[in-house]
């Protein structure tokens, strides 16, 4: 028994928690947009990819200090989110929901190829080497810990925004009753734009945290995009807490799966787990789906 509970296992468990923070942040962005606008941006991971390039260019190429480069990157993706809504989603608000989803699929194609054309297919990284923390026999990269803490901080800010402000309350209210928002004096079009910008900003933050740890290339979104969709489906689309919990569950599976084999198999395990969960708890991890 003791042999099984070894230090590598513990390291993997903690790595999973650290990974879960960033995944939870991404899931929050997707859920926010779905909850308010009732649309899934399947190009969400590609927005993050553009953000990763953004930080790479701001920091490594233009040499801006990090405290300017990171907010600039977040702002850049927030504007992209705004444009995505304004150009693609808004004209489709009355179309079949699936058409909105497919249109964002077109945007996925567009962003991937845009990155290929504009940045080339080479792998790039920030070239920052952050120290490795050693606790006993376990090793954790400082970048991961930083990403985890920043993701948590981002989520706390969103939580405060959602509970303490009028716009945040309206964001929670609109998913409960869309039609009567007009009676409250809420301009839904404007609320959609605010939400899109917010969703974009979250993608921008996730981008900053991911590019600290991983290389960026035009297809990097494909490596974590699918898993984020599984997370939000299992957590229940639009369900913030469900998404949060599911993110950590999946992160653990990926991390522990990766311990015994390649990371890719961790993804496969996660998918298998997902299929099993659909039999066990079809109504979602934390049920609240109509």
């Amino acid at each position: 028994m003791f042999e099984f509970f070894d230090v590598y296992l513990l390291e993997a468990v903690i790595s999973g928690i650290l990974l879960g923070g960033v995944l939870a942040l991404i899931a929050l962005g997707l859920n926010l947009i779905f909850g308010v606008i009732d649309v899934v941006w399947i190009c969400y991971a590609e927005l993050i990819m553009i953000g990763m390039y953004g930080l790479y260019y701001f920091y490594s190429v233009y040499g801006l200090p990090m405290w300017i480069a990171a907010p600039a990157c977040i702002a850049l993706v927030a504007v992209l989110g705004l444009l995505l809504h304004y150009i693609v989603i808004q004209p489709l608000l009355d179309a079949a929901p699936i058409n909105q989803l497919l249109a964002t699929g077109g945007v996925l194609f567009f962003l991937q190829s845009f990155a290929t054309v504009a940045f080339g297919i080479d792998f790039r990284n920030l070239g920052i080497r952050l120290p490795v923390l050693a606790i006993g026999e376990m090793h954790f990269s400082f970048a991961r810990l930083l990403a985890f803490l920043a993701a948590l901080a981002g989520m706390v800010v969103i939580y405060l925004f959602m509970t303490r402000t009028y716009i945040g309350t309206a964001i929670r209210a609109i998913s409960q009753d869309r039609q009567i928002m007009v009676l409250m004096g809420v301009d839904t079009k404007r609320l959609y734009l605010v939400t899109s910008a917010l969703g974009g900003a979250l993608a921008g933050l996730a981008a900053c945290l991911l590019v600290l740890q991983y290389d960026v290339h035009p297809f990097v979104g494909l490596s974590f995009g699918p898993i984020t969709f599984l997370i939000v489906v299992l957590g229940g689309l639009g369900n913030f807490i469900g998404g949060f919990v599911a993110a950590f569950v999946f992160a653990e599976i990926i991390s522990l799966g990766g311990l015994y084999s390649d990371l890719e198999w961790g993804y496969v395990l996660a998918f298998a787990f997902f299929i099993l969960m659909m039999f066990a708890r079809p109504q979602g991890l934390l049920a609240r789906r109509s």
Binding site: F34, V40, I42, P97, I98, L101, L222, G225, P226, I227, F229, L230, V232, V233, L237, D262, E264, W265, Y267, V268, F271, F274, I275, M278, F279, P282, Q283
Partner: peptide, 30 residues
């Protein structure tokens, strides 16, 4: 089967199947 049995339709179905194609790619790569 689980999708249809448990009424995973619309957005949910699209996302689950989207993940499926991503996973097949991962398996081929792995």
């Amino acid at each position: 089967y689980p999708c249809f049995r448990f009424r995973i339709i619309g957005h949910y179905f699209a996302l689950v199947t989207l993940a499926l194609s991503g996973i097949v790619l991962q398996v081929i790569t792995a």
